[in-house]
Simulated assay, not measured.
Amino acid sequence: MPDPVRPADDDARGLARSLMASARFAALGVLLDDGSPLVTRVAFGLDPQGDPVSLISGLALHTAALRQRPACALLVGEPGDKGDPLSHPRLSLMCRAGFLSRQDPEHEVLAAHYLSRQPKAKLYLQLADFTFVRFAVTGAHLNGGFGKAFRLAAADLQPPGSTG
């Protein structure tokens, strides 16, 4: 049987980028200290370069897990109002998490950019335990609907013409 997962093409790249650009939240999968898996919902956005970011609390279980083991996964893409939820596109991102210190000069730039898409996050930015986490994508799987599975590289998710 041939591999049902196809290499990325221009349509798959465009759909994957569209799913990332429109997502306001994602499911985040991490491994806890004892090796148990945990999936939680986090706010989701893109930094000015088009890479995934979130603003998370240092008190959250998933934050401690990411600090201990930065390998993680994100799932973006929501089912539409009608039809089979499994027929709607979704994108799984395999990532490595990295935290951005509030003292980093880039923090203010990222905060302003993030708030343009997530204005309610202004409250969280005022709380000392919240910090940005960047997700460096190492690979991705796109399920574009029934029979439309694609394997993508990190470069496939970058906007056309970008150098990232």
Rank of each mutant, 00 (worst) to 15 (best):
A65Y: 08
A64G: 13
V39N: 11
L115Y: 11
L38T: 03
A97L: 00
A65W: 10
V109M: 07
P160I: 04
F25R: 13
E106R: 14
F135M: 00
P159V: 05
A121M: 07
A21C: 07
F130K: 03
R6S: 03
D51P: 00
K148V: 13
D156L: 08
P119A: 09
S162I: 10
R134M: 08
A23D: 07
L66S: 03
S54I: 01
C72V: 10
H62W: 03
A27V: 11
F132C: 02
F44E: 07
F44S: 00
R24V: 12
R117M: 09
A155Q: 14
C72W: 02
D129L: 10
L93D: 13
D34S: 01
A149W: 02
T163I: 05
S36Y: 08
A65S: 10
L19C: 04
S101V: 05
G145A: 02
A27Q: 14
G50E: 08
P79Q: 09
G58M: 14
L55E: 07
L19T: 00
H113G: 05
K122N: 11
F99L: 13
L127F: 15
G139A: 09
L93F: 07
G77L: 06
L31P: 03
H88G: 03
R41K: 01
F150R: 03
A64E: 12
D156Q: 13
D9H: 02
E108Q: 15
G144S: 07
A121K: 00
F150V: 09
V42D: 06
A111E: 11
L110V: 09
R67P: 06
E78A: 11
D10F: 04
P37Q: 04
L157A: 00
S18P: 02
P48S: 11
P4V: 00
L93K: 10
S87W: 14
R69V: 04
R24Q: 06
P160C: 09
S92Y: 02
V30E: 03
V5C: 10
H107C: 13
K120M: 14
L127A: 15
G83I: 04
F25S: 15
M20A: 02
A136I: 00
G35V: 04
K120V: 12
R41W: 05
F99G: 07
P160Q: 11
L15C: 00
D34T: 01
R17G: 12
A12H: 06
V5N: 04
P70Q: 03
A27F: 13
D33E: 10
N143F: 14
A111F: 04
Y114S: 01
Q49T: 14
L31F: 08
K122A: 15
S162H: 09
L59R: 15
L152F: 07
G50R: 01
G50T: 09
V76A: 02
P85M: 00
L74P: 04
L75S: 12
F44M: 05
R134S: 14
P105Q: 10
D156A: 13
V39T: 15
L19P: 01
P52C: 08
A112I: 05
P37W: 01
R6V: 01
G29Y: 09
E78K: 04
Q103W: 02
G164Q: 14
P7T: 06
H113A: 13
